[in-house]
């Protein structure tokens, strides 16, 4: 496949699709969407080389709202879809976006295994601690005691700590942002996209309709920036894991953990001669020559 001419965007508005958005006024998804678009624009990514993959949930409408290649997949399955896309055409920048139920609930197995595989993709989780699209049930990140329609007496189980999980599982970049601080979240997304390896970004966001506890104000009172602490070292795994335990009165945003290690695709010798797509398009019209392979069966 010949290389296509590179496209440079002149304005961030060129990333708008004009599609109708279904989000409630004030939803944290807006902040995350703006941060994502700004990150793509400021990194001067060619939108034709960006693949945005989502699962199912309020925020998973994102691929229809950003003018890049989009795939709006199944609930919980965005990661296997996206990682296979990265293996098939590793020249694309692959970004995955989905909610806490999608990634930390139904898709948890894929989340853990994607982290340890270290594909060079960026995974943004719109974490609002509640199920919004189904109108307000408990989520894996809902705090113990949180009352929802499905847990009228309060959540019994304890909440998961997503950054601790991804770091333990092998994510080579783990960060947290807050939808109420778009500039900072945008920086996290940019760092994630630039990082070579699996970048997990937990994006805290209020759900203004179904979560009356974890509001903008609730977060603003608790959120502080890790980069302002000179003693914090994001390359220190033990320090990162300890920080990932912190939740409640103080919630850190910023880069929790970062390490350099080969990506999954770096270790695939099959990709030495180009992407699988390029090799597919170079396959002779009559198919692959299997005469040698057939001899093995004589």
């Amino acid at each position: 496949m010949s290389e296509k001419p590179l496209k440079i965007l002149n304005t961030q508005q060129e990333l708008d699709t004009g599609s109708k958005c279904n989000w409630c006024p004030g939803c944290g998804d807006f902040g995350i969407l703006i941060a994502l678009k700004q990150a793509i624009f400021e990194l001067k990514l060619d939108p034709e080389n960006v693949m945005l993959v989502s699962g199912i949930g309020c925020g998973s409408q994102a691929p229809h709202l950003v003018k890049v290649y989009g795939f709006h997949s199944l609930h919980g399955r965005a990661l296997p879809v996206a990682t296979a896309m990265k293996m098939a055409n590793h020249k694309m920048t692959v970004i995955v976006i989905g909610g806490d139920g999608d990634g930390y609930g139904i898709g948890m197995a894929h989340f853990i295994h994607t982290a340890r595989r270290n594909f060079d993709i960026t995974y943004i989780v719109q974490n609002n601690q509640v199920y919004g699209l189904t109108k307000g049930q408990t989520s894996p990140t809902s705090d113990k005691g949180f009352k929802t329609k499905s847990t009228p007496e309060g959540v019994i189980e304890i909440a998961i700590r997503p950054l601790g999980l991804s770091i333990m599982a092998g994510a080579s970049f783990a960060a947290r942002g807050f939808a109420g601080d778009v500039m900072h979240l945008k920086e996290m997304i940019k760092l994630g996209i630039q990082h070579k390896g699996f970048s997990h970004i937990d994006a805290l966001q209020p759900c203004v309709t179904f979560n009356k506890v974890n509001t903008y104000q609730w977060y603003q009172e608790r959120v502080y920036k890790l980069e302002k602490d000179p003693a914090y070292d994001p390359t220190n795994r033990a320090m990162a894991l300890a920080k990932a335990e912190e939740w409640g009165d103080r919630i850190a945003v910023g880069v929790y953990y970062k390490e350099e290690r080969p990506t999954y695709n770096d270790e695939l010798p099959q990709l030495a001669n180009g992407s699988l797509l390029e090799q597919m398009l170079a396959t002779p019209a009559g198919g692959v020559d299997i005469s040698k392979t057939m001899e093995h069966y004589f």
Binding site: V81, T83, A88, M280
Partner: peptide, 13 residues
């Protein structure tokens, strides 16, 4: 899901 994702990108899976 992977077989479908890779196929979407244009390779036979």
């Amino acid at each position: 899901n992977m077989a479908i994702g890779a196929s979407y990108m244009g390779v036979r899976t």
